[in-house]
Design a protein around this nucleic acid. Structure first.
Lengths: 191, 191
DNA sequence: GAACTTAGTTATCAGCTGATAACCTGTCAA
DNA sequence: TTGACAGGTTATCAGCTGATAACTAAGTTC
């Protein structure tokens, strides 16, 4: 069984992908480095070797998620540079769950002295990016992220998104008037 | 050293208070039952004995937090039954951090099959409570909780609240136009 | 083809953590 | 007093988990 050897950089990227999936489900403390390793088909000590510590792996994952979200925002703004366009991009990210939800886990772990600065920087960068791309005022930016956070939390709770539970009335009140991503649920296509 | 013996109910309540503090900082997976026990001045096995499992302790803590938040909302509405009054109550809760932040940790753990239903029920109850108290429409309710979630997340990241870090410009943009609780920071009174 | 570099593994472990079991001790009624 | 219930403790542990060390093997260069 000749294993395909990857370059350290390729493996690094692949591991961050696996970490994204793993941390999305379990959060920082609730995820083991072994889970990440298995997802990537690699031994657990090798994960540690590449990233030093579990904490550094989590931080790298957060930064990667924030970077990719930023990219999606920029792509959306390249087509139409306003908040509604970026809002659509956000909705798409929400159905994919991982990038947004892992960031929420970062927020929740923001009290950690090592993770806090990273997650604040990531979030601040996103705020600046949206303002730069749209030229929107402070109030608009605030409202944009406010509704984004609501949707993010509802997504983490499985109130909206791919694995959403059966809706109740209070849910539709919260989500009803937003152009929510429920209508865009994956109709069975490939991941 | 004669330890003061409490009734099981008193100890139960005290332990939930300790759990509130502990889980607020570390989240569900990141907090040990021993930390809770030490905070309450009790042995770790006794915590398990009273609550069965760590998970049940967390669930009890979430429900307690949601209940107390609801009470605060009702108290605020008793004085003035509109969203701005309840919003003020929310700001106060935010400076106290614990009740709101522990709920956020519940949201983040919402993917867990045992915790998910509980946290959805808690949140749904809060939504229904606010609507019942204010008679506000779906959009108003949504906006209220959207801004609430933004503040909650910013609180968990220590962007606002008691232990807030030095502010940066993007933070003031997000928080600036909200009647934020920063001005109400505890001026040195007793806890 | 040999020396070297780089990608990966297996073996191992110390420390933590939730949970169980067995025991101890105030307090109160009769 | 004595018994019995309720509120606790100490002792113990199996299993997990992040991390280290030592070893193996696939390419690569000369």
């Amino acid at each position: 069984m000749t294993r395909t050897r990857l370059t350290a950089e390729e493996r690094h990227d692949q591991l961050i992908g696996a970490a994204l999936t793993a941390f999305t489900t379990g959060g920082y403390a609730g995820t083991t480095t072994d889970q990440v390793a298995r997802l990537a088909g690699v031994s657990q000590p090798y994960v540690i070797r590449l990233f030093g510590t579990k904490q550094q792996l989590f931080i790298a994952t957060l930064e990667h998620a924030a970077y990719r979200i930023e990219q999606r925002f920029r792509a959306a703004a390249a087509i139409q540079a306003d908040l509604s366009s970026i809002g659509d991009a956000y909705d798409e990210l929400l159905t994919e769950r991982e990038l947004i939800t892992v960031l929420l886990h970062g927020f929740a772990a923001g009290a950690d002295p090592a993770i806090g600065p990273v997650v604040r920087a990531c979030f601040g960068r996103l705020v600046e990016t949206v303002r730069e791309l749209t030229g929107a005022g402070a109030e608009e930016i605030r409202d944009f992220f406010a509704h984004g956070m609501l949707l993010t939390v509802l997504g983490a709770m499985n109130v909206v998104g791919r694995d959403a539970v059966a809706p109740e009335k209070w849910m539709s009140d919260l989500v009803g008037s937003l152009d929510l991503p429920k209508a865009r649920q994956d109709p069975g296509g490939p991941a």
